[in-house]
């Protein structure tokens, strides 16, 4: 075999680094959306590689629903300190207090949808012109058609029928006043690629991804973590289980998996054997067949 040949992880890495550098070069005020989940952790790592030995030429932005796993916040703060990045936090609670967002009620109440309002407000407040995020095309079918450089109008909306053609590695980030871009540097990665890369690069991960004991309850076939703001139905019972998170998002809609995987290798083995998509545990996607598409049109990530 030709020795001048990259394996798939290095090729994906190279593509993502190219996209991240393109953002830094083409935009005046880019920002990297950081949720504390594995995808945003990987993008942050790629961004460090892209600009090393310089620091990140953009801040990290965490849209904080207030419904977090404490481990996520600890990890976030440690990482920011370690890499010397600037962190901006947009609080969903603040949007609710200002009356811009209305808290959902009922058993399945979640602040996941409200994030969009806080995100768009924060983008406007800081005049960010490009927000990078960890969305991947393999996650959900509406995402399969998303561009690397995704143009958003003045209202932050996505028009799936009118996307800019994106060819080769030429990314058109030109825009009019008030418009901005969402950029997805790891568009072409799968869940498996992400974990393989974490292993390859030995990236430190939040403890939530590894097996631990947690109080959980089962709703619609999905295990959810209990939390002070979660209401249990009469038929639901909290119990201690051995679990790990497959995705990390807002606690109210992040399903946990019964798992004893305690190392990256074990997680990868588990994913290789698993038969349900990672978003299968996301209550937010189950709302309707086009749930993701609708949220994206509104300006959701």
């Amino acid at each position: 075999m030709n020795k001048h040949h990259l394996n798939h992880l290095r090729e994906l890495e190279s593509e993502s680094i190219y996209v991240i550098r393109e953002v830094a070069a083409q935009f005046e005020r880019p920002v990297l959306l950081f949720s504390g989940g594995k995808d945003s952790i990987v993008i942050t790592h790629l961004a460090r590689k892209a600009f090393y030995p310089a620091k990140l030429p953009f801040p990290l932005l965490h849209i904080d629903t207030g419904h977090n796993f404490q481990e996520t916040l600890d990890y976030r703060d440690d990482l920011v300190k370690k890499i010397g990045a600037q962190l901006i936090v947009g609080l969903v609670q603040e949007s609710i207090d200002k009356g811009k967002a209305v808290e959902e009620s009922g058993y399945n109440a979640s602040r996941n949808v409200l994030q969009t309002i806080t995100l768009l407000d924060t983008i406007e407040k800081y005049k960010f012109d490009a927000a990078m995020g960890g969305a991947r095309r393999d996650e959900e079918k509406a995402r399969a058609k998303e561009r690397f450089f995704s143009h958003r109008d003045e209202f932050g909306q996505w028009d799936p029928k009118n996307q800019r053609p994106e060819l080769w590695n030429i990314f058109n980030g030109k825009k009019n006043m008030g418009e901005h871009f969402r950029v997805f540097p790891i568009s072409n990665w799968t869940e498996m690629d992400v974990w393989q890369y974490i292993l390859l690069e030995n990236i430190e991960m939040p403890s939530l991804y590894f097996t631990h004991q947690r109080e959980v309850f089962c709703r619609d076939g999905v295990w959810l973590a209990t939390a002070p703001f979660m209401k249990l139905k009469n038929t639901e019972k909290a119990e201690i289980k051995t679990v790990r998170c497959r995705t990390i998002g807002d606690i109210t809609c992040t399903g946990v998996t019964l798992s004893e995987a305690n190392t990256l290798e074990e997680i990868i083995g588990e994913i290789a054997a698993t038969r349900v998509t990672e978003r299968g545990g996301r209550a937010d996607d189950k709302r309707s067949d086009a749930a993701m598409e609708d949220r994206k049109r509104e300006g959701y990530f």
Binding site: K141, A142, K145, K161, N188, T190, A290
Partner: peptide, 23 residues
């Protein structure tokens, strides 16, 4: 499996380039 957007499902056609992954 590959019909992504709502309008595509409604019309039974594919409108845009969609990217799929397997290994």
């Amino acid at each position: 499996l590959t019909d992504g957007l709502r309008s595509e499902r409604e019309q039974g056609i594919t409108i845009d380039v969609a990217y799929r992954y397997f290994a």
